[in-house]
Design a protein around this nucleic acid. Sequence first.
DNA 1: CAACAGTTTAGAATTATTATAATGTAGATT
DNA 2: AATCTACATTATAATAATTCTAAACTGTTG
Lengths: 145, 145
Amino acid sequence: MAKNCNFIEKLRELGLRPTKQRVKMCELLFNREKTFHFTINDLVKMISEEMNEKISLATVYNTVHAFEKKGYLKEISINSDKSYFDTNTSVHHHFYDEDTNELIDCDENDIDPVNIKKSITGKKINSVEVLVKVASDNQNQKKFN
Amino acid sequence: MAKNCNFIEKLRELGLRPTKQRVKMCELLFNREKTFHFTINDLVKMISEEMNEKISLATVYNTVHAFEKKGYLKEISINSDKSYFDTNTSVHHHFYDEDTNELIDCDENDIDPVNIKKSITGKKINSVEVLVKVASDNQNQKKFN
DNA sequence: CAACAGTTTAGAATTATTATAATGTAGATT
DNA sequence: AATCTACATTATAATAATTCTAAACTGTTG
Ligand SMILES: [Mn+2]
Ligand SMILES: [Mn+2]
Ligand SMILES: [Zn+2]
Ligand SMILES: [Zn+2]
């Protein structure tokens, strides 16, 4: 979705009624320079911090899934217990910081194209994504206790 | 863990008591030619099919996590709702069949080494893994109903 | 064969997510 | 503007995966 804008129009074009909950969530998610990653919980927290009225959890789930279905959010699985969503819906690679549980996008220059030599008959490739797990480099971490 | 064997010894070496539940799970998981992928539910089903006595769900979780901690299983996150485990604990790439929810291992010949040009200061790379999502190639699938 | 520490177990608790069903409302129709 | 209606929101209950708890049990050590 575009920056800086009339989300009411955009939502209508998508066939989604521009209710105040959806508009608010659009503003939080898409009205910014950079794409970002969030969990449902992050989003609920963002909403309650930046709003007087609350949006019910069910609506947050419904709306996130509606935006996902329309292709404006994508789901990312890193660890089993939590689901991340990404406002960057392109096929792209990630660094995952295991210390902070933070996801970091790569751009095309960060990782060379992946050369796949295997193919499965009757199946087409939908996406190829790399996950680079990183962690703090304290090799000589000592514990004193 | 090795094939075909005295798991009692192996478990003892790991500092895990060789209880009958653990030995049974070792046999199911590690006493085979090829590595494989499973969910906790798969495993519970396997156990109840191949045993007269049941192993409680809590013990299955405990034991899987114990084996994971010792480095004999690794957890793989593909979609948010279910956790896969892999008896292949090496860093390796996967194909994921979105039609059947099946995970397929790649070997070194299937995908060329990934060239990472980005680095994050103070962080070391723990793993680099590629996930290739595939699906059925019926581009002109028509629905009649 | 005690004694103890580690282990299993059933069941309760937690957490993430989805379903339900009553209520509310945006936008169209009068 | 009042009414209508399909779609949305909401609180709440239901599910599902996973973890916790605390009592019963068992392998190992002496
Ligand atoms: Mn989803
Ligand atoms: Mn785990
Ligand atoms: Zn991303
Ligand atoms: Zn694998």
